[in-house]
């Protein structure tokens, strides 16, 4: 399978003006349509890393290429057409008098025509189920809805790459599952998604690949199963695999010869009575 690399980091270093070194030599290549989970403890450098992917941060040394654009040489405005960054707290970006205006903001900034904007807003409202709220003030909506509007406002810009920072924080279980379903939908549309999260269940359920950051370095890269099965790595980084994975591992439950990652897989495994042999 030939893979088109969409994001590439070469020996990426980042030191903040305060002197704190947040990234020390990260090499990474992400292919189109990959769903990549970025995990690590607070302060491990994961947010710093993904902020390089839409030009919010520029490398102190090394290079970052997004769709072949060297982020050093491009403005955020240019890169954000390709890589959409959804911030953790929707309150940090909602400002317009209505959801519709909120959704129009990004597309208008990247110079879409009026018809294109209307079409993108319609698609975004449809994709995220926001049609009935289009004329509401976003500040009068509930927090989960605001969070949805936040993601939708990026979706309206039609970027190939989505960077989601803690997409499930502050959401209840049902809403968090909806986010997982949305990510799968983004994947079906052929988009590349990066998820920075502490929600291991979400990572296990959605991601095709997981990278682990620890002390400003990339120390793990593999499928969710490989990463969550690597006890040594997890202990070092103080991360815990999803509970269902741990339980399945403990009791030796297997799904198609592998440890189940999601509740659905575990249920199937139990029904089939598949065990590690």
């Amino acid at each position: 399978m030939s893979k088109n690399i969409i994001i590439k980091c070469e020996d990426l270093h980042h030191t903040y003006p305060s002197g704190v070194s947040a990234l020390q030599g990260v090499d990474l290549a992400i292919a189109e349509r990959e769903i990549v989970g970025v995990i690590g403890q607070n302060g491990s450098g994961k947010t710093t890393l993904v902020k390089h992917f839409n030009g919010l941060l520029k490398p102190t040394s090394g290079q970052v290429f997004v769709k072949g654009i060297n982020t050093r040489e491009a403005e955020i405005k240019e890169i954000s057409r390709h890589a959409g960054y959804v911030f953790q707290n929707p309150n940090h970006q909602l400002f317009a008098g209505s959801v519709r205006k909120e959704l129009e903001f990004g597309p208008a900034n990247i110079g879409m025509s009026a018809e294109e904007i209307e079409e993108r807003v319609r698609l975004a409202a449809d994709f995220f189920g926001l049609e009935e709220f289009l004329d509401e003030n976003p500040y009068r909506l509930s927090f989960p809805l605001r969070k949805t509007v936040g993601i939708a406002s990026i979706y309206a810009m039609d970027p190939e790459i989505f960077i989601l920072d803690e997409p499930t924080t502050g959401l209840d279980y049902t809403r968090a599952r909806m986010v997982a379903a949305l990510i799968k939908k983004l994947q079906d549309e052929g988009r590349t998604v990066l998820i920075v999260s502490h929600d291991m269940m979400l990572i296990a359920e959605c991601c095709t690949r997981v990278i682990v950051l620890w002390n400003s370095r990339l120390i793990g890269d593999g499928t969710p199963r490989e990463i969550f099965g690597n006890r040594e790595l997890l202990e070092k980084t103080n991360l815990a695999p999803p509970q269902i994975f741990r339980m399945a591992e403990e009791i030796g439950l297997q799904h198609n010869g592998k440890t189940p990652l999601s509740v659905d897989e575990a249920v199937e495994a139990v029904e089939r009575g598949e065990r590690a042999g």
């Binding site: 909602l94 400002f95 008098g97 003030n137 500040y139 009068r140």
Partner: peptide, 9 residues
């Protein structure tokens, strides 16, 4: 005025 629009009713 725009800020008032985003404040609690």
């Amino acid at each position: 005025l725009a800020i008032l629009g985003a404040l609690p009713k």
